[in-house]
């Protein structure tokens, strides 16, 4: 059964797209991640033009993050003030990112930059996560208590000016690193089609020392707004949001996520992280192979009307 994607301008098998959405939704529910970093590379592997994959991936992130964000809002585990500062940086970053996206596209280097960013980010984040979870599993095997890394000491970030009090997080922190983090994630959202939670959450915990209880909700708050903003800006500058593709993905994704959550609750934290790390590494390796092996055709043709 095929369906024609009007913006990607190609026919795809709807069952494959549904399967992709459901699988990524399942994994994102299981690991508690947005899934943008999986959906975009998968779409690229399935020959969806990277420009469309990225913009559509951001749209899928909105759907997969919103229910989590609402749950956290109800429970009161979002620091709105902190989230707003992150968001301000995020919106500026996303705007710059879409501009960069158009620029790279016009000089023909967009596909390369997307792949390179994925390889670098997935490789480093996956590697670190795997390392950390292996250590945790070893300690668990030896029956040592895993120490929570939440030491009270301050790092240089806490010496920066423009400090602000974030009541809900119970911290007194400069807005500079918060907005900068939001800004960087905003760029990633618009250039890579990811929510960026897999970078933002560790950065908030380890660099900014924000209490874990509000980290996930606050990062989801920022992700929903930044990715929604990115979708609108991508749609109006690059015309690359494929609504048919996005809709099929999100329907399958939200259903898959419900089952993923149930499986995830049965697995132990460090096992879960090790599995996620392996998955992240596998996607990164697959993308890097694509960059290294000789392409089928070293030439490509791009029409001005619809520039890939």
């Amino acid at each position: 059964m095929t369906v024609y994607l009007p913006i990607a301008e190609l026919s795809v098998n709807i069952l494959i797209i549904l399967g992709m959405g459901a699988a990524v939704g399942f994994l994102s529910g299981m690991f508690g991640v947005g899934g943008g970093f999986l959906i975009t590379p998968l779409l690229i592997f399935y020959n969806i033009p990277p420009v469309v994959a990225v913009a559509t991936g951001a749209n899928q992130v909105v759907a997969s993050s919103i229910s989590g964000a609402i749950t956290h809002f109800r429970r009161g585990t979002i620091d709105i003030k902190l989230g707003t500062v992150l968001l301000c940086g995020g919106l500026v970053g996303a705007t710059l990112g879409v501009w960069l996206f158009s620029l790279l596209r016009s000089i023909g280097q967009l596909d390369l930059v997307i792949s390179l960013l994925y390889v670098v980010l997935l490789g480093s984040v996956g590697g670190l996560m795997l390392w950390e979870s292996i250590i945790a599993m070893r300690k668990a095997a030896k029956n040592q208590p895993t120490q929570l890394r939440r030491p009270g000491q301050h790092n240089w970030i806490h010496g920066l000016p423009l400090k602000m009090r974030f009541k809900k997080s119970k911290i007194y922190l400069s807005v500079i690193p918060v907005a900068t983090l939001g800004f960087c994630i905003g760029i990633l959202t618009s250039v890579m089609g990811v929510g960026g939670g897999f970078i933002m959450v560790p950065a908030m915990i380890y660099l900014l020392r924000i209490p874990t209880s509000v980290v996930v909700g606050t990062s989801l708050f920022q992700i929903v707004f930044v990715s929604a903003y990115t979708v609108i800006v991508q749609a109006s500058t690059n015309y690359t949001v494929d609504i048919v593709l996005a809709f099929v993905l999100m329907i399958a994704g939200v259903i898959g996520a419900q089952y993923g959550v149930r499986v995830g609750q049965r697995l132990r934290g460090e096992q879960l992280r090790a599995l996620l790390a392996l998955l992240v590494l596998a996607v990164g390796i697959r993308l890097s192979i694509e960059l290294i092996i000789p392409p089928k055709d070293i030439y490509s043709v791009v029409s001005a009307g619809f520039g890939f």
């Binding site: 909105v62 919103i66 229910s67 979708v231 609108i232 609504i243 996005a246 999100m250 939200v254 419900q258």
Partner: peptide, 12 residues
């Protein structure tokens, strides 16, 4: 596109 995503995510 965003509204569709919000409705889908929330609805689910």
């Amino acid at each position: 596109a965003v509204t569709l995503a919000v409705i889908t995510g929330w609805g689910a």
